[in-house]
Design a protein around this nucleic acid. Structure first.
Length: 463
RNA sequence: GGCACCAUAGCCAAGUGGUAAGGCGCGGGCCUGCAAAGCCUUUAUCCCCAGUCCGAAUCUGGGUGGUGCCUCCA
């Protein structure tokens, strides 16, 4: 498989360190709030990568972190802890908050048919590993203590900035962040923070009570489960400049060796052409989409329709298009499912090869979807259905749900006024009184229902 | 100010040197009393300018426009 490596900014052939299993670390959620659809896009990307690797017969050892430790609002060492703020707002303990949102997160993964990585690592269960890591860095001279914590000394790691390709001296030092005067370098980041007595989540450490910095969490846990050097690391593009840069510094300071061979990042999802943000009120969750009548698979399809390294603009117009496309896809596949015919082996081979090449080329899933659509246009054959299911090992679109095209069932009760009109229209139709029939239909429409005459009878849908 | 990405039909989106996948929509047709749904079918020369090449959406240079990051962030 060829994958795009952020480190080299090139597509490279993927060669694992070991034949046993691909070692992959994926940045997971901070569980202080609902994950939104932008977050989920990144996990869908991770899932596609995992599925594609499996399709190519790699075995996997994946780790995903659950950040259930509070981190500060800003790296400027001020501001409130996110977990604590949520806890206060909901009058619960941080652990309750974390548990609640962790569960919701996994439910969302399930809804979107995202496979859980083999190992799920909670930050609060790895505090000792983090402390040990900080101690090591401190001993080796890469960290120093200030009045409020232990910081990583960037100047001791000259390679800093290799992933994002920033030049440190060109950054606007302190432009939007209050400088912490005790820090030796502007980019130095906290490995461990000393806690104020009021801070709820804190642990005993060689530096008194405190809590870990965000970046050390991922380094400690990836090292613990995957070793100092592993194959792949995934995350969102926003993590490139700070979080992953810091991880590299932490991991490589001690070994002097490249810690991750392939860095892969999923692009952002935009909403209406701009950034998703709570203040703009354009943040959606999977549950909200479901309440609006969108099956989670429609959202997954929406994400699959664009390459993972391209920004994807979320609009409801786009979602409607995908909803239709997805439903038609299932309907088309159903014709193959119920067919007893066989397909020409050379055609099956051709589609399978095209699909493989698309996936193999840095996960060109949009192209692969196009291939699937083209295949469904073939004369119905159970073989095409079987092949589609094989493709679905990568797509994860639950194509086995293929069934005859169905109108959405009305979830609510139909008002008697409407059902009476439906009956009256049926009578008028039987009497070939078209004027009356059309009049009834117009009134049904006014009441918010659409009426369709199918060969199996009249169907009502909500407008 | 710095870094990065992007610009393909009405919309979404593949394609990165050999003559524009796929989806939605629109138009046309079949079906229907008429509609709707369904099915069939049609629909672009690739932001602008200059250059390289037998040949460029694809490479180079210069513009213009958009987005993200540089602060927690998927």
């Amino acid at each position: 498989m060829k994958v795009y490596n952020t480190l080299t900014r090139k597509k490279e052939k993927f060669v694992p360190l070991s034949n046993e299993a691909v070692t992959m670390y994926s940045c997971g959620p901070t569980v202080y709030n609902f994950a939104h659809i932008g977050n989920m896009r990144t996990y869908i990307f991770m899932d596609l990568l995992r599925r594609a690797l499996k399709y190519e017969n790699f075995r996997l050892k994946g780790v995903m972190n659950i950040t259930d430790v509070g981190h500060l609002q800003s790296d400027a060492d001020e501001g409130e802890d996110k977990m604590e703020r949520a806890a206060k707002a909901q009058n619960k303990s941080p652990y309750e908050i974390a548990e609640f949102y962790t569960n919701v997160f996994f439910e969302d993964l399930d809804k979107l048919n995202i496979e859980k990585p083999e190992i799920i690592a909670k930050a609060t269960e790895h505090i000792d590993d983090m402390i040990n890591y900080v101690v090591e860095l401190h001993k080796a001279g890469y960290a120093y203590e200030t009045s409020d914590g232990i910081y990583f000394d960037i100047s001791k790691f000259p390679k800093y900035g290799q992933l994002s390709r920033i030049k440190l001296d060109e950054q606007m030092a302190g432009a939007r962040v209050e400088e912490n005067t005790e820090k030796r370098n502007h980019q130095d980041f906290a490995l461990w923070k000393k806690a104020e007595p009021t801070h709820i989540m804190q642990w005993q450490s060689p530096w008194g009570m405190g809590y870990p910095g965000w970046h050390i969490e991922c380094s400690a846990m990836s090292t613990k489960y995957l070793g100092k050097i592993f194959d792949m690391h995934t995350g969102g593009v926003d993590h490139i400049p700070i979080h992953h840069e810091n991880e590299i510094a932490q991991n490589e300071a001690l070994t002097g060796k490249k810690s991750v061979n392939y860095w892969m990042h999923g692009e952002f999802m935009l909403v209406d052409g701009g950034k998703m943000s709570k203040s703009l009120g354009n943040v959606y969750t999977v549950s909200q989409l479901m309440n609006m009548g969108y099956d989670p698979m429609v959202f997954r399809y929406f994400c699959l329709n664009a390459h993972y390294r391209k920004k994807l603009n979320f609009t409801f117009e786009g979602m409607d298009a995908c909803k239709k496309a997805y439903n038609r896809l299932l309907a088309a596949l159903y014709l193959h499912k119920v067919s007893a015919e066989s397909a020409l082996p050379e055609k099956l081979e051709k589609y399978e090869k095209e699909f493989y090449e698309a996936i193999d080329d840095d996960l060109n899933v949009p192209l692969a979807l196009g291939i699937l659509f083209t295949m469904t246009k073939e004369n119905p054959s159970k073989d095409y259905f079987e092949l589609a299911l094989k493709f679905d090992n990568v797509f994860g679109l639950r194509l086995d749900n293929a069934g005859p095209y169905q109108e959405e069932e009305l979830k609510e009760e139909i008002p008697t006024e409407v059902s009476e009109l439906v009956n009256a229209r049926a009578t008028a139709k039987t009497n070939k009184d078209w004027a009356k029939a059309d009049e009834y239909r117009a009134r049904i429409t006014e009441l918010g229902y659409a009426i369709k005459d199918t060969k199996d009878g009249t169907v009502l849908t909500k407008i």
